[in-house]
Amino acid sequence: MLLIIKTSFMRKIIILSVLALTIFACSEPKDDTISVAGSTTVLPVVSSAADLFMKQNPDSKIIVNAGGSGVGVNQLGSQRIEIGMISRDITKKEISQYPNTSFKTHAIGRDAVVPVVSSEIYNAGITSLTLDQLAKIYKGEISNWKELDGPDKEILVIDKEAARGTRHVFMEIVLGDKEAQAAGADLVLGANNEEQTALVQSDAALGILSNGWLNDDVKGLSIKMPDGTLIEPSLENIVTNKFPITRDLVLITNGTPTGKTKEFIDFILSPEGQEIVVKNGYVGISE
């Protein structure tokens, strides 16, 4: 009897210690793991590049997470990740918040931020807007598609979370301040895919998306310039900078990257990596 109790008791202790050891072992950070997080605009490029890179270098491990540009800057700033993905400039405030991190940027491609409407609105004839009209919609001064010669429907204005890269770039050009508040907004969403879903589900929505996230259900609008010319969000117009709202897709590191991190960034900048950039609907950096 005593023996049985003793052995089962001992077994429990052994199991517990093994468990404790496992947890302890798991918490040990591995040097060769590269953690990446941030902008959902850059995400598709980096995650397919990471798949290919890991296939070619079986001993390396890359973990890619989303979160948005703001998350990318914060996590790199607090040195929890090796590479941050951003689709906007780092703000002065962000740099001052992390005095111990020296942000180093590596542009890997170019993109446009495109105003997007639900396909019903696009098919009803609204295929372009001026920057001024966009500003009025986001300020709440235009609230019905009728005022823009569209169907008689309230505009569902979709805004984005404050620190998102797409929002910074768009608001900088349209409202003149990257942190401007949009009084006309009806919804505030986060990642590109969340915004895409909302645009598809609605029949009267206006949102902002990265050029790489456009498809048949979410159609990008052309921008009507003051002189009357229409500039559509094509790769050609991004390369020549004709499209008014363009930006770089950027990876950030703390100081000059070394080791596997450097190899990975070099891989994305190589012809093979740039092919992935183009395949995702963006413009390569060399063009």
Partner: peptide
């Protein structure tokens, strides 16, 4: 849920 990731620790 939406903003904690974007806010800098200590701000």
């Amino acid at each position: 849920g939406r903003e904690v990731g974007e806010s800098a620790f200590g701000s």
